[in-house]
Design a protein around this nucleic acid. Structure first.
Lengths: 340, 340
DNA sequence: GTTGACTACGCAAACGTTTGTGTAATTTTT
DNA sequence: AAAAATTACACAAACGTTTGCGTAGTCAAC
């Protein structure tokens, strides 16, 4: 029904008997075009409902004003909140955001990177898959001059741009909180061994224990693959002892939910017989009856915002053709505990 | 450092002393190109690391293989789950998804639509702002042949493609559940008057009461602007009576959380003194101690998936140049209660 | 040995825009 | 009044790809 064809600069030119270059310049109010002509062009453009064809410009400029975000899962509040940060920030710069869910599959991550590269995005933000331990698929992007900034789940290497969260500050606050409350036996429920976050949490846990002059006791350290039954198994390991830990650091809120249910079922009272502090990834505790003492907040929104800022800096540098590789943009923000 | 320029079809052509058209066809294994030439082209293409410039193709084909999704907020699980549905579905078709958060602002919604139009997306999925009551900004898209499918929060008009959720089925199940449990005084806490969902819930509430031969009683109907204090005010209205409603339908889970806290604070016991069923938008109840009797699930993921399917049908029709306006694609799926 | 059919490829236009360069016409300078 | 400068525009190339059409060359058929 509608006229399928959108008006172009050519049609304006024809209508006014001027050249397309004149029209183009007039539309940009270029000084070399006379005032009358400029006005006439604007008038006709408006009449025709002309709008630039951005696809043409993207093509010509070799830019798309689009950035890609690769996150493990949209369903996780931690990441949807991060995406929110990206979107808010990118929107202000009139950039579009395309998303890709890796669903924690390395293969999907590769495919998404490939796809975004094909789409010629101007830059990519990534939070890695649990499985990701090699980074060739990202290194490839350098050939295409597509900058990449990692956030939260970042590669274990130094020659990258990234934003991550320092668990030490939060964990230290957490342990202090426990210690101040009189706890001496502070356990840990950790994640899957292959996740970078797991090793990190363990190291920092040790470090913080040391800083508080507490002994390391492997009987009160458990790990889980994050499945429900494994979570239950982990907490059961800790409470199936004569002398159970009175405080436990828990890998994340999902795990903690299972822990809470399990200890309750075992007849223990949370925050009395046993206290918890978790690494926050669910914004639910304020609505819950049974809460951990506190959570260690890792500020996904903030991380993502900073990462996006970095990305725009890099894209900018690209535009200006600053071939001299600028320094790696890296920022580690402090985690903090939030009390409940 | 890197060679900034990506190899093009031209360079392959030059290298082999053939024309670009030959290369193009060879790359697509066109039968009119000899086998040897085809193979040589493929070989050189591989050597050079050639990849098609999709921007060029997008431009030429006037397509971007990208769809836009406009949702009120990524932070709401209901919508991030919907986005998840879109992404999963679109990914299978090798389509990209760009997102826009309206943040329930009509003005932002307009801007996002504009932006997506500029970006020449192939289609748009929308869940409306609470404020949206006029639709010119969407009607505009027809000029550009950009199909649009609404989901969940859909316009109050008939000449659109949409997927929405029928509250009647779920509400009827809910009221029946209450009635079966012996409840006779079933209240309602509704949303802001200007939201379409509010009127709808009210009408269906009346209808379901009628179908169960229950009287309408305005003393046990309240409404809230969805702010915390308003939520509290609403539930207080219901329980500050001699004879309180023993069952209440609640606008959504956020409201319900406040209701539960409030009735507890008032010394009432949930599921004994007063029972609730809410319209689900938070996937948290299975982790909570105090739960509603059930929730009315509106299947955001499913709605979004179907809407995406519709959108692809429309895009397909567009591609085939089926100018004959195909019928409006409309589907109303049944809500269902899920018990806790 | 003139047709006709195939094969295998090249030419050029087209998509819409921007931009460097060229050039008349007009105005200013000397 | 001739030279120089300025104004206001046009021309054409370029971005990378696809595709309709044209055309040499080969081979078989009559």
């Amino acid at each position: 029904m509608q006229n399928n064809k959108l008006p172009t600069i050519k049609e304006i030119a024809k209508k006014l008997n001027v050249s397309v270059s004149t029209v183009s310049r007039a539309l940009h109010d270029h000084p070399s075009i006379g005032l009358v002509t400029t006005m006439r062009v604007h008038k006709v453009a408006k009449e025709l409902g002309y709008e630039v064809n951005k696809s043409a410009i993207y093509f010509k400029e070799r830019k798309t004003y689009t950035i890609g975000v690769i996150i493990p899962s949209l369903a996780e509040p931690f990441f949807s909140s991060a995406l929110c940060g990206v979107e808010d920030f990118a929107g202000q710069f009139n950039y579009n955001v395309i998303i890709g869910q890796s669903l924690d599959s390395f293969e999907r991550e590769q495919r998404i990177v490939e796809n975004m590269k094909d789409h010629r995005v101007d830059g990519i933000l990534v939070s890695l898959t649990k499985e990701t331990s090699t980074y060739e698929h990202f290194d490839n992007l350098k050939k295409y001059n597509i900058p990449i900034v990692f956030f939260d789940r970042v590669p274990q290497k130094k020659d990258i741009h990234f934003v991550s969260c320092n668990l030490h500050s939060g964990m230290l606050q957490a342990i202090s909180r426990f210690v101040d409350a009189g706890h001496k036996k502070i356990g840990l429920i950790n994640g899957p061994a292959k996740m970078a976050a797991t090793l990190q949490r363990l190291e920092i846990y040790f470090k913080c224990l040391k800083e508080n002059n507490l002994p390391i006791n492997y009987d009160i350290i458990a790990s889980t693959t994050l499945s429900k039954e494994d979570n239950v198994k982990a907490i059961k390991k800790l409470i199936d002892q004569e002398e159970i830990p009175t405080a436990v650091m828990v890998f994340n809120d999902y795990v903690l939910l299972d822990c809470i249910a399990t200890v309750k079922a075992a007849g223990l009272e949370v925050n009395k017989d046993i206290s918890f502090i978790s690494f926050a990834n669910l914004p639910i505790w304020e609505y819950m009856d049974t809460r951990p003492l506190a959570s260690i907040e890792q500020f996904s929104y903030k991380q993502a915002s900073i990462a996006t800022d970095f990305l725009f800096k890099l894209i900018d540098a690209n535009n200006k053709g600053e071939s001299t590789e600028i320094d790696y943009l890296q920022q580690i923000i402090d985690s903090e505990i939030v009390n409940y």
